[in-house]
Simulated assay, not measured.
Amino acid sequence: MRISRDKLNKLAHVVADTLAEIPECDFLEDRNTIRQEARKCLEKLLTDEMRIDAAARAKIASQRKIIVEGSQEWAILYRKYYEDEVKKLGIS
């Protein structure tokens, strides 16, 4: 999923602001540094998700039989291949 730079920045601000509201959470860095790190983490997560999605779709496309996207068979294979790719990255 592609998210605009503005939306990603907004999410990072929400993360930093939410953490700041938690009494048990003390920042060792300033809030802007926390926001930037949250943004980096979100970017990496989205990049990984796009890579996993592309790999799962490629595996389905490489099948001998043509499997139509949106069909039940496609959905089952996508879920299986997606989970396999997640396990490869150790993200379970």
Rank of each mutant, 00 (worst) to 15 (best):
M1T: 03
M1Q: 14
R2K: 10
R2A: 09
R2C: 00
I3D: 09
S4P: 03
S4G: 13
S4C: 12
R5A: 13
R5T: 10
N9L: 12
K10E: 15
L11W: 14
L11G: 09
L11K: 15
A12G: 10
A12I: 06
H13N: 12
H13K: 13
V15C: 07
V15G: 05
A16D: 01
A16K: 01
A20S: 15
E21I: 05
E21V: 06
I22D: 10
P23D: 14
E24Y: 01
E24F: 03
C25R: 04
C25L: 09
D26V: 09
D26R: 09
D26H: 12
L28C: 11
L28P: 01
L28E: 11
L28M: 11
T33G: 03
I34E: 02
I34L: 10
R35N: 03
K40G: 11
L42S: 08
L42F: 14
E43H: 04
K44Y: 13
L46W: 03
T47P: 00
D48T: 09
D48V: 05
M50H: 13
M50A: 10
M50K: 15
M50S: 11
R51V: 00
I52Q: 01
I52D: 04
I52T: 06
A54E: 04
A54T: 04
A54S: 11
R57S: 06
R57E: 14
A58R: 15
A58I: 03
I60Q: 06
A61E: 10
A61D: 15
A61S: 13
A61Q: 07
S62G: 06
S62K: 06
Q63T: 08
R64V: 09
R64L: 10
R64M: 13
R64Q: 13
R64N: 14
R64H: 13
I66C: 10
I66V: 14
I66M: 08
I67S: 05
I67M: 04
V68C: 05
E69P: 03
E69F: 03
G70I: 00
S71F: 03
S71G: 13
S71W: 00
Q72S: 14
E73H: 07
E73V: 04
W74Y: 15
A75L: 12
I76L: 15
I76E: 14
L77G: 01
Y78R: 11
Y78D: 02
R79Y: 04
Y82E: 01
E83S: 09
D84P: 01
V86D: 01
V86F: 03
K87W: 08
K87L: 09
K88C: 04
L89R: 14
L89W: 02
I91C: 06
I91Q: 09
